[in-house]
C-alpha cells in the first residue's frame, strides 16, 4: 500500500488519459512497474515515466497529481477505494464510473465529471463543465450514487439521466439542470439557467434562488414547510459543504408533467 505523487514533466500538448493511475491499481506495484504503465497521449501511447516525475510514498493507497492540467482526462475513472487529489485543474471525465473512494480537485474540471458515478465522493474546488453527474452520450444511466460537491459553478445538463446520489453546487448552474433526471438530489446555492428539470421523472432540485421562469410543465404545489429538509441540509455538511445552511420553507413545483411528473423543484423562500 502506498501513496504515489505524480508531477508532469512538461505542459501537456495533447489530451492525456490517466485512467490507469488509480489507487487500487497502483497499490501492488513497485516504482519500475508504475513507470512502465502505458498511457494514451493524443494518438500515441507513452509510459508513465516519459510524462511524469513520480515518487512512491508511504501511507494509505492514494494518488496525487501535483500541478494538474486541463488536459488530464479520466482522473479516477472506475476507482473503488483510496483517495486521489489533483492539485490544480483536471480535464474531462473526472471520476467517470467511480465506484468508491474520494477524489478532490483544487482547480476546475471539464466535461462529464462524475458521469455514471456509482459510489464515493468528489470535491471540485473550482468550476465543473457540462454534463456533471450525467450519462455518456447514448447511455441512459447517469450518476447512480455517491456525492459531488462543486464549490464554483457548473455547466449545462447537470445530473442528466441521474438516478441516485447528491450533487451540491455552491455557485451557479447552467441550462437544463437535472434534465431527464430519474431520481436523486441536486442543490444549487446560486442561480440556475433556463429549463431546470427538463423531462425529469423523479428527484429533487433544491434551488436557493428562483429561476428566471419555472418551466410550464411544472405545476405549483404551494408553499410548504418540509420536515426532511433539515435532515437533508445537515447531511450536506457531512458531504463537505456548509454553504447551504438550514431552511424548511420552500415553494414546491411538481413535474416534469411532460415526463413522469413525480419530480420536484423546491425553491427556498
Amino acid at each position: 500500500m502506498s501513496a504515489v505523487t505524480f508531477a508532469l514533466k512538461a505542459a501537456l500538448r495533447q489530451r492525456l488519459d490517466v485512467s490507469p493511475l488509480i489507487p487500487e491499481a497502483l497499490a501492488p506495484l513497485g516504482p519500475d512497474q508504475i513507470g512502465a504503465i502505458p498511457l494514451q497521449y493524443g494518438n500515441r501511447t507513452l509510459a508513465v515515466d516519459e510524462l511524469f516525475d513520480f515518487e512512491v510514498g508511504q501511507g494509505d493507497p492514494g494518488v496525487i497529481f501535483r500541478g494538474g492540467s486541463e488536459k488530464l482526462d479520466y482522473v479516477g475513472r472506475g476507482m473503488t477505494q483510496g483517495e486521489i487529489r489533483v492539485e490544480g485543474p483536471a480535464g474531462a471525465y473526472v471520476g467517470l464510473q467511480m465506484k468508491g473512494g474520494r477524489l478532490s480537485v483544487t482547480g476546475s474540471v471539464g466535461l462529464f465529471c462524475a458521469a455514471e458515478m456509482r459510489r464515493g465522493a468528489i470535491l471540485v474546488e473550482g468550476d465543473a463543465g457540462d454534463w456533471l453527474g450525467g450519462a455518456l452520450p447514448g447511455n441512459r444511466k447517469g450518476m447512480a450514487g455517491g456525492s459531488v460537491v462543486v464549490r464554483g459553478c457548473a455547466g449545462a445538463r447537470v445530473g442528466d439521466h441521474m438516478r441516485r446520489g447528491v450533487i451540491l453546487i455552491e455557485g451557479d448552474a447552467g441550462e437544463y439542470l437535472g434534465s431527464r433526471m430519474v431520481a436523486g438530489t441536486i442543490a444549487v446555492k446560486g442561480r440556475v439557467g433556463a429549463h431546470p428539470g427538463y423531462a425529469m421523472k423523479r428527484g429533487t432540485l433544491l434551488l436557493f434562488s428562483a429561476p428566471g421562469s419555472v418551466p410550464p410543465t411544472f405545476n405549483d404545489c404551494g408553499l410548504h414547510t418540509l420536515g426532511f429538509l433539515p435532515l437533508l441540509l445537515r447531511s450536506f455538511v457531512g458531504l463537505g459543504s456548509s454553504a447551504f445552511g438550514i431552511c424548511q420553507r420552500v415553494q414546491r413545483y411538481a413535474g416534469d408533467l411532460a415526463a413522469n411528473g413525480k419530480g420536484e423543484i423546491l425553491i427556498v423562500q
Partner: peptide, 15 residues
C-alpha cells in the same frame, strides 16, 4: 404513488 424516497447520509427515508 406520490411517496418520495430520499437517501440521506446512507439511510433511506420516505416522504
Amino acid at each position: 404513488g406520490f411517496q418520495i424516497s430520499k437517501q440521506i447520509a446512507g439511510r433511506r427515508y420516505w416522504r
